[in-house]
Design a protein around this nucleic acid. Sequence first.
DNA 1: CGCGACGTTGATTTGCCTCAACGATTGTGG
DNA 2: CCACAATCGTTGAGGCAAATCAACGTCGCG
Lengths: 192, 192
Amino acid sequence: MDMNTDLFLDNMRRHIRLTEEEEAVVLSKLRPVKLKRREHLLKQGQVARDLAFVIEGCLRAYALDDNGFEHILQFAPAGWWISDMSSVISRRDSLLNVDAIKPSEVLLLSREDQLSLFDDVPKLERYFRVLTENGLVSSRMRLIENLSLTARQRYQRFCQTYPNLINEIPQKYIASFIGVTPEFLSKIRSER
Amino acid sequence: MDMNTDLFLDNMRRHIRLTEEEEAVVLSKLRPVKLKRREHLLKQGQVARDLAFVIEGCLRAYALDDNGFEHILQFAPAGWWISDMSSVISRRDSLLNVDAIKPSEVLLLSREDQLSLFDDVPKLERYFRVLTENGLVSSRMRLIENLSLTARQRYQRFCQTYPNLINEIPQKYIASFIGVTPEFLSKIRSER
DNA sequence: CGCGACGTTGATTTGCCTCAACGATTGTGG
DNA sequence: CCACAATCGTTGAGGCAAATCAACGTCGCG
């Protein structure tokens, strides 16, 4: 079987050390999937069953508000996990959509398999705890920044934090991420 | 020894089932502390070493921006955990302050003890993973709401989510939490 | 009692949105 | 390979939600 798992193994090994057998058990649960641009991995109203590890391309998670506007909560370039943890954990309908910004490839892990892996390979629980902790940290960070920074400052911060993404994805997605209209981001960028 | 741990044990038992010995090991690491109104558990610039479980009163976590304004990220009434996870995890200086809104009592657990407990009582890892997951969920929820709701709607949402807190804490804290000035919250409330 | 913290109210300002028009670029089918 | 549509970014005029600033009433507390 020929799935490109190097990026994933690198990522996991940065946090925990497993035996070869254990790694094989984990890998056996991962399902590789290719996505076209705009193709959805998850739509709101569905229950999210899978976590996705991006090995190529870039995905995004976004919410649609009552007026039909998109609000991007997370970008996931290669090497990142993405999904609606809220839905995965609670098994309730997702409020988020996840789709591919560009042609991408991901490894899927169902919540069911994840939980059974926690029993079979207990060290894995630590790996995902750390990931969740990091997710919490960055989510809080964004909350602070949204409460205390102006749009201009949030854009500068985005440029510092995701220098790779800036030239990789359409500008309107960046606007949606930092919480302004595409028009206003354009005006910000034109100043100097 | 006379520390009121019922609330904590209730909370933990809702997630995992431990033996009496295991519970005793966990309890042995908890240090009870009383806080006066306004007393700080953590100030920004320090490295947060402790997680705090509130057994009485109410605490808050807030960030100070460059202009000296406070932005409250979390309230923790009795039965809630609070701290700056970001600092605890990364061992870097905290960006948050944590203090008591009213006279309070908390149980402290150092990160060091938490990690050693993960080795001694592996089931505990699950408890904290779930807590962190829930924290992530609510943090994301707030981010969505801050991006997509008006101040009026955020206030209504706050009233639904924390009906107990509304008459318990000064209004300016609620303003800080939902991300408006105290003056504007006052105007919102006076409409109808 | 008198002071400080808090909430209210009003006048004014401002950061960002809305709407509309217009190039530039990309993509697509003939 | 061209023609055309769709998508995207830019620019400008006008509008609105919320901030700012200031004054004032009220309450709790030393």
